[in-house]
Amino acid sequence: MRKSLAVRIANFVIGWSAAIVFFFPIFWMALTAFKTEPAAIATPPKLLFSPTMINMRAVLDSADYLHFFQNSLIISCAATLLAIILGTPAAYAMAFFPGGRTKDVLVWMLSTKMMPAVGVLVPIYLIFRDAGLLDTHVGLIAIYTLMNLPIVVWLIYTFFKDIPKDLIEAARMDGARPLSQFFFLLLPLTAPGFASTGLLSVIFIWNEAFWSINLTVTNATPLTAFIASFSSPQGLFWAKLSAASLLAIAPIMLLGWLTQKQLVRGLTFGAVK
């Protein structure tokens, strides 16, 4: 299908405008990270400046970046894996053996995402305190697993829905029990789906700040808490904060960049075919 020139120009303008609007804050943060503190708050803002590594060095000196990075990595990967392990059987049952209320259950699961997290902060905090889960990996992994479970179930459900029911029935006739069905049929057929589900889940957890800041102190703190630690006591140091933020998001940006094909596929699944 050949589009007319006007349509193509319009697409170009709208697409690039949207991209610039979304990307600008990150771009500005990246610039600020390499400015001196006075240059960072100068008005009018400076586009041209001589870059400095002073903030990077300061940030890396003042806190153990690797410690936070390691925590983020452990927590996001473990919680993602757990959410997939727990969510897959649910998605399997709902996709291939739907009951009268399957749709309601799915919507209810998603509706839990609509509730503001702060609403359950106090009970969760008390439970975590009494169970000794505050500032532990296990605690954060548990909360993130539960946080992502609805989305993981939804995504895997839509991928499974795409597999003809006949295939599962043929496999049942051939003697494949659910585990064999999963490893011989569903996993090979929906591997890209699982990849994008996992990636999305990791990204969501990597970016999550509310629970990580409220439930950790030092031991299990991920990178979001690392950024936050640069904002509070001494007042705002924009350049240092930007440097810390850049360091925190760099790994996940890189991951997203490398896997953008799978990510887009995961996010648009069902919408575009």
């Binding site: 003809p164 006949d166 029935e169 043929a170 051939d174 049929l185 090979p188 057929l189």
Partner: peptide, 19 residues
Amino acid sequence: APDRRGLAMVFQSYALYPH
């Protein structure tokens, strides 16, 4: 269970495993 009955079924859609 279906497989223990010793029956085989041919589906309208053929239901071949695509991979």
